[in-house]
């Protein structure tokens, strides 16, 4: 089998295991290329039937407009159910407190809303688009990763995962994060998107945009960014390699207008995509700490 066929077949197998093993699963949809790929894989796993789970979007309120447009068009096209958890609701209710200062972001607050949404709908499994090649802590993540009732990941208590047998048995209150594209790399995802002709939000492709420079990276100028007098707004040709909260997703300068250009750019580039995420820069163990706290 060609490697893309093999990765696809494995991901479909994992999605069907989720359907078979859990009572109330959900697919976490961020609007990024990885979760878009998973939606495509779910079509392959379950059509002509309906998805045995809703899509869940944790909305920070600091979105790229293009992502929301894409999301709503996609939902209309596939005819599946979407549940949106709003970070703003948790801020208003006092469950989460907005960060202050120049690098303020709602990225960390997502965890609160995610856990509340899981609790409210009693989800026992949440499918996510994380990949092991993204970051060192993720390299050790299981495909079925059990979280306690506080959403915590304990790297020392992970279940051994043998062959393709995924143990989804949990106690009440616990839930499982499932990562069907664990074994894919960034380049695999792009090659698959090209092969399958999967439409993407426009911000993945080069466009002109107002940006400011922070920590050596371009951030999209937006009302959500706290500016001070040192910040200089410039117009640049950029694209985004990941889609997250506007306050922590950096752009790269690019003239890649077509998916072939992007694949060439990534093949030549030697900066990993998480390198363009401000939220991982805090410390070498940043991702591990956030995973333990219930982040994806």
């Amino acid at each position: 089998m060609d490697y893309l066929d093999e990765l696809e077949a494995e991901a479909i197998y994992i999605l069907r295991e989720v359907a078979g093993q859990f009572e109330k699963p959900a697919l976490l949809f961020s609007g990024g290329k990885d979760s878009i790929t998973i939606v495509h894989l779910a079509l392959k796993a379950f059509r002509p039937g309906k998805f045995p789970f809703p899509l869940v979007h944790i909305d920070t309120g600091h979105n790229f407009e293009e992502t929301i447009t894409y999301r709503d068009e996609m939902i209309a096209r596939i005819g599946e159910k979407l549940i949106v958890g709003h970070v703003q609701d948790d801020i208003d209710a006092g469950n989460a407190i907005e960060q202050k200062g120049k690098n303020a972001s709602r990225n960390q607050l997502q965890t609160v809303t995610l856990l509340n949404t899981i609790a409210k709908h009693k989800f026992d499994a949440c499918i996510g688009g994380a990949r092991r090649d993204e970051e060192k802590a993720r390299a050790k993540e299981r495909i079925f990763s059990v979280r306690d009732e506080f959403g915590q990941w304990d790297p020392k208590r992970q279940r051994p995962e043998l062959w393709n047998l995924y143990n989804g048995k949990i106690h009440t209150g616990e839930n499982v994060r499932v990562f069907p594209i664990s074994n894919w790399t960034e380049l695999d995802v792009w090659n698959y998107i090209r092969r399958e002709n999967i439409p993407l939000p426009t911000i993945y492709f080069a466009h002109e945009r107002e940006v400011i420079t922070r920590g050596g990276q371009y951030m999209a100028a937006s009302p959500f960014l706290n500016l001070d007098e040192d910040d200089l707004i410039e117009r640049k040709n950029v694209r985004f390699r990941t889609v997250g909260d506007m306050t922590c997703t950096a752009a790269v300068e690019s003239n890649a207008h077509h998916i072939d250009d992007i694949i060439n750019e990534i093949s030549a580039s030697r900066v990993s995509e998480r390198g363009a995420r401000m939220d991982d820069k805090v410390s070498e163990a940043a991702m591990e700490d956030r995973k333990k706290g219930g982040y994806f």
């Binding site: 092991r132 090649d133 060192k136 390299a139 050790k140 790297p155 020392k156 992970q158 664990s182 074994n183 790399t185 380049l187």
Partner: peptide, 10 residues
Amino acid sequence: TIDVAYKYFQ
């Protein structure tokens, strides 16, 4: 190393 870590290259 205390656990299985997966690495990818091509």
